[in-house]
Design a protein around this nucleic acid. Structure first.
Length: 886
RNA sequence: GGGCGCAUGGCUCAGCUGGUUAGAGCGCCGCGUUCACAUCGCGGAGAUCGAAGGUUCGAAUCCUUCUGCGCCCACCA
């Protein structure tokens, strides 16, 4: 093994080995308990970013842990066709060739996208592989593959027949650049600084004017009324009279509607039914006909003055303002901050647009999904997202599912040109079911990409067929994703799952944070602040990336990354590597271990280590079960680095290197192997590559069936905590030993004593059990504190001149001829005395308060009393030491 | 406008159901290359836990208000 861990080569080697041995291929005939999850399918034309790295690391940890815990695991992998996003990518590419999709035509264009899909697909999947995700590649799916497409059609038809899908003319969010409808969720509202324009609309009878306020002046060309609140005394007398709409010279009525807020703006609202959802609602109530003044590219059109025709909406806005100004009809223009909807794929400002679209009626579907959350059959991690979810569900609105693009599942609806019948069918009809005509036209639109995503947990397993896979692995258990897509995807999957399969598709929803840069900005390509996970993998390895991510963030909290974040993982990999290198180096050729040494051959340090290990196993298991992966990572990091490497390995070196007592040496070796191996098993879900590599080295030299129980660690058993090994008394004893050693080291360091200068120590013990404990570890104290000898006893005489320290009541005196600096000691003692005194004061104060002694539990009071007693004794000893120095 | 989250040493964060002398990593300072690891070891300095109230014998931890930052939702033109 090399001196430093180098992930290059190793990662690919193990990935290939896992694949060849089909380790992650789920067996649908298994008799084991099953565990399944589905990956949030990445956009097929996407590239791996830190969010993916985080998301997939979390899932991989869950899945590998379950696999090692005896479950048959299915992790479904696949990609999403991502309708608008992918179409945009390809259209942009076409633009470079000076082509539009219309130049190619629908069929050729879709072909072209498929080509792109094939090419990009390789990118994202190879990137997922490099992360180490243990997905079942043999069952990879794509949202537009045959099976999933069949599922989409099945669900569409079924919802239509159940009266849960309808078509109609409504105001929807429209992206003029993508030229398609969007759902409410796809229009992102971002705060922006705009203007509120106040226009004077002349009354038709010339008797004055009404001032209206708008943020979108261009829409005035489509105004069909001015609305006021019926209770507004300022305008009540005008209700029923008319306005002469400037520039277009159309006579429009003044109407009364409760929607109008008297206190906002002027209290008079211009009504543009075709281009504003509220205005549309008002118009519905007042039987006003919408006048469309923009086309699908948000270019001005319709019954408007010619000079505005063909203008872009924003250019037109300027013109309108200029023209109204010229007419003296602009009252004021003020700054106005408001949230403007933007297309989530291209950030173009969305335009409310009046058009024919398909919708899913959501309320009936939401009812059951809401009930599941309320009955706690769904658990959110962290819990607070439950409220976000239920709030959304309770206020759910119908879902616009038709998109005016070409890449996606074409809506399975046909219109008969002869009899105008509407045919909704899972299979392509050839003749009209009503009039036998063959003149059928399929609906031009495709479905929202999320209409296939919401079926993902079961469509990927073969549904609507009751395949063996579906029967065995559906429903899944946990679903891990970012909170951003709680509504887009998670909520909808729950609804679809209940509707289609009568079951919740998963019960645990694990939401991790958003990946941000150091200054808190979301990492994104457009901001240029993203750290490419592949760069990190290339430099530090996938394991370092994964482990660092897990160490950096608490459950559900956002992840703030800087380039040096990944040193945590890199350094830890190296530490592990070297720990293994060391342990392996102590094995001459091969070794067979049948069991741990019997208890009577274990000393305090061994029992301490095994106790720490068992506690760590239990804590890790519990952290993993509640998806607190950072907690598990931290526990493993601490136990590996600080307990095992810093103390235990150092302690056991004496036994490992000594050759006189072969049994002792073998015992030490077995114990080190046991602890290291156990830690590595737990670390494997976090850092699969390096551990698999180390595991292979262990396997080469060691036979130890209780530990090394599989060819690949991916298939080995996850450690189980052994209650019998937990020993708090021994842990406390060893902690005392550690603290004594540290105290002596501190005294040495503060006195600047060179490492080669050894000293002697006298330890005056506080209790008989401390005497026993310290005496048992006497040799170690001498070795680790660099002493020629330590004398331990209850009644030792204080040396005349020495450095001194108190450890849990035990006095530690360090003698080093001519090397102890009196001044240093005086300062340290003074500081220590001051600290002790202030502690005594506060403790005494507490104990003197009858409120405390009367109301606090007896054991808490007793503890305080004990503390005070100890502190007082410490103070006395410190003062003695001070006196002795003088 | 409604909801949620975060404010802990120079930096990045832990701290789960209230009771420790408030932890870690990075950075900093000192010492160190004896044979696992300088991507290392040993030691140290550095925090009145955003502010003000409150509950409690006791609060970083619970409640209220405030300030700052962030996120989500929402049809005030």
């Amino acid at each position: 093994m090399e001196k430093q861990y180098d992930p290059k080569g190793i990662e690919n080697k193990w990935h290939d080995a896992w694949t060849e041995n089909k380790l992650f291929v789920a067996d649908e005939k298994t008799t084991k308990p099953v565990y399944s999850v589905v990956i949030p399918p990445p956009n097929v034309t996407g590239i791996l970013h830190m969010g993916h790295a985080l998301n997939n690391t979390v899932q991989d940890i869950i899945v590998r842990h379950k696999r090692m815990s005896g479950c048959e695991v299915l992790w479904v992998v696949g990609t999403d066709h991502a309708g608008i996003a992918t179409q945009n990518v390809v259209e942009r590419q076409l633009a470079k060739e000076k082509l539009t999709r219309h130049d190619l035509g629908r069929e050729k264009f879709v072909e072209r996208v498929w080509e792109w899909k094939t090419q990009y697909h390789a990118t994202i999947t190879s990137q997922l592989k490099r992360l180490g995700t243990s997905v079942d590649w043999s069952r990879e799916r794509f949202t537009m593959d045959e099976g999933l497409s069949a599922a989409v059609r099945k669900v569409f038809v079924s919802l239509y027949n159940d009266d849960l899908i309808y078509r109609g003319k409504y105001i929807i969010n429209w992206c003029p650049r993508c030229r398609t409808a969007l759902s409410d969720e796809e229009a992102e509202h971002k705060d922006s600084k705009g203007k509120l324009y106040h226009f004077k609309y002349p009354l038709a009878d010339g008797s004055g004017h009404v001032t209206v306020a708008t943020t979108r002046p261009e829409t005035m060309l489509g105004d069909t009324a001015v609305a006021v609140n019926p209770t507004d005394d300022r305008y009540r007398y005008l209700i029923g009279s008319h306005i002469m709409l400037p520039l277009v010279n159309r006579k429009i009525p003044i109407i009364a509607d409760d929607f109008v807020d008297k206190s906002f703006g002027t209290g008079a609202v211009k009504v543009t039914p075709a281009h504003d959802p509220n205005d549309y609602a008002i118009a519905q109530r007042h039987y006003l006909k919408p006048i469309i003044i923009m086309d699908e590219g948000a270019t001005m059109t319709g019954p408007i003055p010619d000079k505005y025709k063909g203008l872009d909406r924003f250019a037109c806005r300027k013109e309108i303002v200029a023209d109204l100004t010229a007419l003296g009809l602009v009252d004021t223009i003020e700054d106005h901050d408001h949230a403007v909807g933007q297309c989530y794929r291209c950030s173009t400002v969305v335009e409310p647009y009046y058009s024919d679209q398909w919708f899913v009626k959501m309320a009936p579907l939401a009812a059951k999904a809401l009930a599941a959350a309320k009955k706690n059959t769904i658990t959110f991690y962290p819990e607070r997202y439950k409220k976000t979810y239920t709030d959304w569900m309770e206020n759910i609105r119908d879902w616009c599912i038709s998109r005016q693009i070409w890449w996606g599942h074409r809506i399975p609806v046909w219109y008969c040109d002869e009899c105008k019948a509407v045919i909704v069918s899972e299979t392509d009809p050839t003749i009209c079911t009503h009039c036998d005509s063959t003149k059928l036209r399929q609906d031009n639109d495709v479905l929202d990409t999320w209409f296939s995503s919401w079926l993902w947990p079961f469509s990927t397993m073969g549904w609507p067929q009751h395949t063996d896979l579906y029967k065995k692995f559906y429903p899944t258990t946990s679903l891990t994703t970012a909170p951003e897509i709680l509504f887009f995807w998670v909520a909808r999957m729950l609804m679809a799952g209940i509707y289609c399969t009568k079951q919740l598709p998963f019960t645990d929803i694990v939401l991790h944070g958003t990946v941000r840069d150091k200054s808190g900005r979301k990492m994104s390509k457009s901001l240029g602040n993203s750290i490419d996970p592949l760069d990190v993998i290339n430099v530090n390895g996938a394991d370092a990336l994964r482990f660092s991510l897990m160490m950096t963030t608490a459950q559900g909290a956002d992840v703030y990354l800087s380039p040096d974040t990944f040193e945590i993982g890199r350094n830890f990999c190296n530490k592990l590597w070297n720990a293994a290198r060391f342990v392996l180096g102590t094995i001459p050729e091969k070794v067979t271990i049948t069991a741990l040494p019997p208890v009577f051959r274990l000393d305090g340090a061994d029992i301490w280590m095994l106790s720490r290990l068992s506690k760590t196993i239990a804590a890790v298991e519990s952290a993993l079960q509640t998806y607190r992966h950072n907690e598990a990572a931290r526990l493993l990091y601490d136990c590996t680095w600080h307990d095992f490497c810093d103390w235990y390995v150092e302690l056991k070196k004496a036994d490992l290197y000594q050759t006189e007592d072969a049994e002792k040496q073998a015992d030490a070796r077995a114990l080190c192997i046991h602890v290291l191996g156990t830690l590595q098993k737990m670390l494997h879900p976090f850092m699969p590559f390096i551990i698999e590599e180390i595991w292979s080295h262990l396997r080469e030299k060691i036979t130890y069936n209780n530990l090394i129980d599989a060819q690949f660690i991916s298939c080995a058993s996850f450690p189980k905590s052994n209650k019998d090994q937990i020993n708090d008394a021994i842990e406390a004893e060893f902690t005392l030993v550690q603290n004594v050693i540290t105290a002596i080291r501190t005294m040495r360091a503060e006195n600047n004593i060179p490492p080669d200068k050894k000293g002697t120590a006298k330890i005056v013990t506080a209790t008989p059990s401390d005497l026993a404990s310290l005496t048992a570890h006497k040799a170690r104290i001498e070795h680790f504190a660099k002493l020629t000898s330590a004398t331990i006893g209850a009644d030792l005489v204080r040396p005349s001149f020495c450095a001194s320290s108190i450890v849990a009541g035990n006095q530690v005196f360090l003698e080093l001829e001519g090397l102890i600096d009196k001044q240093v000691e005086l300062e340290r003692l003074a500081k220590e005395i001051a600290r002790t005194q202030s502690l005594i004061e506060s403790t005494q104060k507490r104990l003197e308060s009858p409120a405390f002694t009367g109301k606090a539990p007896a054991e808490v009071v007793a503890k305080e009393e004990e503390k005070l007693c100890g502190l007082k004794s410490n103070l006395e000893k410190l003062n003695q030491s001070l006196a002795a120095l003088h």
